[in-house]
């Protein structure tokens, strides 16, 4: 088991290397340079000044050399300095140690994704189980329709609709940011309540698509399991149906869900650009949007790398979860 874990960890390194290599080449080979933006903003800049600038950033070297330089710094966890005018280190922009934890971009995005994953799990699994145990019932048909709509729903549209309904029409929930203007003057409980109110819409929106996918998956996984012989055997020995489902079938039906959770991480991270943009949440997605708009190469690469590390960790965690759940794998 330990050897398996070590093997999986070691496997992550070449994968991560591959991801950064592909991303680096795609981004640096795309036409247009960060210095173009500077020249657009300041037409008086001379070609010589521009060249000097490119040299300063190392953009004049062959791309493979640039990648080598980047990689050398990454090993020391140094993502370089941002190209933007403030020149702050990339790491500081993503994880600002001078700010309280709740204000750090990576933390905000990470917690939002974790929250929505948690919500997906606790809602999707029961929905899927009930759909499977009551196959072709009215309940099953209704959830199937909702699931199909959920698959097709553009998350940013759902966000707009909810903002219109709960934010503007009823004026129940805030539609932007993570806290109110008067946050600092609130008592502790008020502060917590204020945060919760700001989180309701973004978390719901980011969980919605995943909810549809996972409940559907849970349903088909459960349907497959309850046709197995050992479930029939459990029924035959006279166990009550709830015990058959929740004790014997559920454990096995959950296995594929663990894998699915791991696979859904890149989608969740990618989606954070959209909903952080809509809800004005100062997270990593919003920072990424700003960084691509200004062609801030180091920042773009830094966020892509962190996104990839999160994805790979998600896969690793789901493998570990699988191992604990499935004794057949543990034996290897």
């Amino acid at each position: 088991m330990i050897t398996y874990l070590i093997k999986r960890l070691l496997e992550m390194i070449p994968t991560l290397f591959g991801i950064t290599l592909i991303s680096f080449f795609i981004i640096h080979l795309a036409p247009g340079k960060p210095t173009d933006i500077l020249t657009e903003l300041n037409p008086k800049i001379t070609p010589e000044a521009r060249e000097k600038l490119e040299k300063y950033y190392g953009l004049d070297k062959p791309i493979i050399v640039q990648y080598g330089m980047w990689l050398k710094r990454i090993v020391k966890l140094d993502f370089g300095e941002s190209f933007s005018t403030d020149r702050r280190p990339v790491m500081e922009k993503i994880w600002d140690t001078k700010q309280p934890l709740l204000e750090r971009r990576l933390f905000i995005t990470f917690m939002l994704n974790l929250l929505s994953m948690f919500i997906i799990l606790i809602i999707a699994i029961p929905i899927g189980i009930l759909s499977a145990t009551h196959q072709y019932s009215l309940y099953d048909k209704i959830t199937t329709v909702i699931v199909f709509i959920g698959f097709a729903m553009p998350s940013f549209w759902l966000a707009l609709l909810l903002m219109m309904l709960f934010g503007i029409h009823f004026d129940w929930l805030p539609i932007s940011g993570l806290k109110s203007m008067n946050y600092d003057s609130l008592p502790l409980l008020g502060k917590i309540w204020d945060r919760v109110r700001h989180l309701i819409l973004p978390v719901f929106v980011s969980a919605f698509t995943g909810l549809a996918a996972d409940s559907r998956f849970m349903r088909s996984s459960m349907l497959e399991v309850i046709r197995q012989d050992y479930v029939t055997a459990a029924r035959a020995k006279g166990l009550p149906e709830t015990k058959v489902i929740y004790r014997h079938a559920l454990k096995n039906a959950l296995l594929p869900i663990i894998t699915l959770m791991g696979l859904s991480v890149p989608g969740l991270i990618g989606g954070s650009v959209i909903f952080e943009n809509i809800f004005g949440i100062p997270g990593m997605g919003q920072l990424f949007y700003m960084s691509v708009m200004t062609r801030d190469y180091p920042l773009v690469m830094g966020i892509l790398t962190i996104g990839a590390i999160l994805t790979l960790s998600g896969n690793l965690l789901s493998d570990i979860g699988y191992m604990f759940a499935d004794p057949r794998i543990r034996a290897k």
Partner: peptide, 17 residues
């Protein structure tokens, strides 16, 4: 490797550039 890249991030970056 391609499946581990948050693709939407990459699409966004390339389109912006």
């Amino acid at each position: 490797i391609m499946l581990s890249i948050p693709t939407f991030f990459l699409i966004l970056a390339v389109i912006a550039f």
